[in-house]
Amino acid sequence: MKKLIKLLFITIVAISGIDCHAQRKDTDAKISHYNISRCRDRKSIGDASIRILYAFNAENIRDKSTWIDEGQLKIGRGITQYSSHFEEVNEDSVAIWLNTHSKSSAWPPARWLRGHRPDHWIEYQYSNIHIIDNTLEEYATMPRAIETDNLKYSETLPLQEWSISDETEEICGYSCQKAICHWRGRDYVAWFAADIPVSAGPWKFGGLPGLIMKIADSTNTYSWEATEVKNGTFPIYKPRGDKYKESTREKVQELQRKLNENYFKTTGTEVIQYKTGQLLTSRKHPYSQLELE
C-alpha cells in the first residue's frame, strides 16, 4: 500500500511539476582553490559529436542563477561523459586567460562560475562520470581543505529497470515518452526522446530507447531537465588519473555524505570564531544523498 501511495505521489509530482524541496547548495563546503594545472594541462581523450545540457535542480528553468549546476552529457563513439558545464566554461575561460597571459604568475581571483551559490561545492557538480563500454568511472573532486583527497572508482554500468507508459510531453523541442523506475533507494520519473537514439542520460541514468531529457526523483530532491541539444565537436576532458586516489563507490559516497552533513568536522578544519572564541561547527544541514543504497 505504501508503494502504491508512493507511485501515485510520483505521478502527481510529475504531472503538477511541484518543486517540493530541491537540494540546495546549503553545505559549508566551498569549492577547492584554483587548480591551474588542471586548466593548463587539460588533454582531450576524444571528441563527442552530441552535447546535451541539463538544468540540475533548477528553481526556474529560464534563470540559470537558480540552478545548482548546468550538467552536460557528451556522447561520442564508444564513450559518454557527464560533467558540469558551468565548471567547464570556467576552465575554458581560465585556460584562455592563461594562454593570453602566459607571462603572468597570478590569475584572476574571480571565476567564470555561475548558478545558485557558485562558490559552494556539491558532489553532483564536482564529479566526472565516464562510461566506456560497460564500465562506469567516477572522478570525485573534493572541496576546499581536502582537495588533495580527490577520489575515483569504477563500477559496472548500473542499469535501471524501466517501465514505459504511453504518456508524452514535449521537452526542449522533443516529444518525450514517460518511464518510471526504482533505483538505489529512490523512485524516478523520466522522460525520454525516442527521436534521439541514444540510450543515455544525465548522471548515471540511461538504458531507455532514447535520450533521457528530464528526470526527477519522487521527492524532487534531484532533478535534471534538458535545455540544449547540439551537434558539433566537443572535446572530452578526462581528469588526470594520478591526481585521484583509487577508492570504491561506497567509500566515496560516505565521504561525500559526511562533507555535506558536517564539513568542518569531516575535513578537520577547526575554525575559531573571532568574536565568540567558539569553535565553528557546521550547521545541521538536511541532507539526503542521491544514491541511498
Binding site: S49, C172, G173, Y174, D195, E228, V229
Partner: peptide
C-alpha cells in the same frame, strides 16, 4: 553514419564569454 540531431536551446544565453 553520424547522427545529426535537431538542435534546440531553450535557455540560450544573451551574452556568452570565451576569453576576451
Amino acid at each position: 553514419s553520424d547522427i545529426l540531431l535537431k538542435e534546440v536551446s531553450v535557455v540560450a544565453e544573451k551574452i556568452t564569454q570565451k576569453g576576451d
